[in-house]
Every structure is written in C-alpha cells, then in structure tokens.
Simulated scan of single mutants.
Amino acid sequence: MKTWIEEIHLIRDARDRAAFARLFAHFAPRVKGFLIKSGAEPSVAEDCAQDVMVSVWRKAHQFDASRASVATWIFTIARNRRIDLLRRDRRPEPEDLGWGPEPDLPQEAELELQQESEQLGKALAALPAKQRELIEKAYFGDLSHREIADMTGLPLGTIKSRIRLALEKLRHAMD
C-alpha cells in the first residue's frame, strides 16, 4: 500500500487517476463529515467536499510534506472553503437590498463624504502597487481572498497579509 504522500506525488507528477480515486475514496467522506460537524447542511457539505477534492487534484503540486501531512493539507483546504462559503452566505442577496433612489444627504454631509472619498483615493494611490491591486480586487472586484490567491497564484497567507497591511495604512491615512 502506498502512503498518502506517494499518492499525492503520483497525482502531481503523472495525473494518476487511480491514485486520485484512492485518495478521494478515503478523504471525501471524512471531509464531508468534518463539514457537517462544523455546521454545514449535508448537501452543502457534499458539494464543498467535492470542491475540496477537485482542489486537491488541481493543486497537488502545491503540497509540501515538510509543512503538513496530506490529511492536514486536505482538511485545511476544507476549512478554508467552509470559511469562504460562510462569508458568501453572509452577503445580502439583491432582493434584500433597498431599491430606489437613496434620500438626499444634507449638503454638509455630502461635502464631508466627498472629502473623505478624495482622501481615500489619495491614500489608495499612496499604497505600494502590490497592496493596492489586492485591495482593489477584494473590495472593488468583490473577490474573496481565496479567489484572489487562485487568480494571482500567490499563497493565501500572502494575500491576507498584504491586505491587512494595506488596510492598516488606509486606516492611518484616514485618521
């Protein structure tokens, strides 16, 4: 019997479907159970587990045995996917948003809002390019940190660190 690390390497190096099938048969039910225990509905857990296993197939090249076991790596992907789903579920649906024109602000408040917008624009322009791009993707592009990491190829931790640093700089600039 091969170790899970050997199975990941077969997937990474040879796109070995049999190795993936063995990995899938072992981990997919466990990931689904983990997600259900963490509060996901069974159907959501099933979809999420499938998505996690697809990520394992696509990202086998990112596995590093010196940093984590195969199980830890897979369950970390599952935990992060669950967090992404929770964040997505907390966003208001379009029908929950108010429709129609917003009431006019008093002239004083409108001027203050305009000044704050200009100040924010200057603060954004002053950020290092790498941080500014991530802020724009996250807040103007409405992408999750995971989506940005997938899009840029940067590690998720790097994305989070750069965004956190950028937000801290923006807070100081706005004070």
Rank of each mutant, 00 (worst) to 15 (best):
Q114H: 12
Q114S: 13
G121T: 12
E112L: 14
R146A: 13
G141T: 02
S144H: 04
K122A: 15
A138I: 05
G141A: 02
Q115E: 15
E136W: 02
M151I: 09
A129T: 11
L120Q: 05
Q131C: 05
P128C: 02
H145Y: 15
Q114Y: 11
D104S: 08
E147T: 10
D142E: 13
D150S: 05
P128L: 04
M151C: 02
E133A: 07
D150T: 06
T152W: 02
R146F: 08
E147R: 09
L105W: 08
A138N: 06
A129G: 00
L111W: 09
G153P: 07
K122N: 10
R132C: 02
G141K: 03
Q119A: 14
L111H: 10
P106E: 14
S144I: 07
P103T: 09
P128Y: 04
H145S: 11
P128V: 07
R132P: 01
K130M: 00
E136P: 01
P128A: 00
A109V: 13
L143F: 08
S117F: 08
L111C: 03
L111F: 09
E147K: 09
K137A: 11
E102C: 07
P128N: 00
S144W: 07
I148H: 03
A125C: 06
L124I: 10
A126L: 05
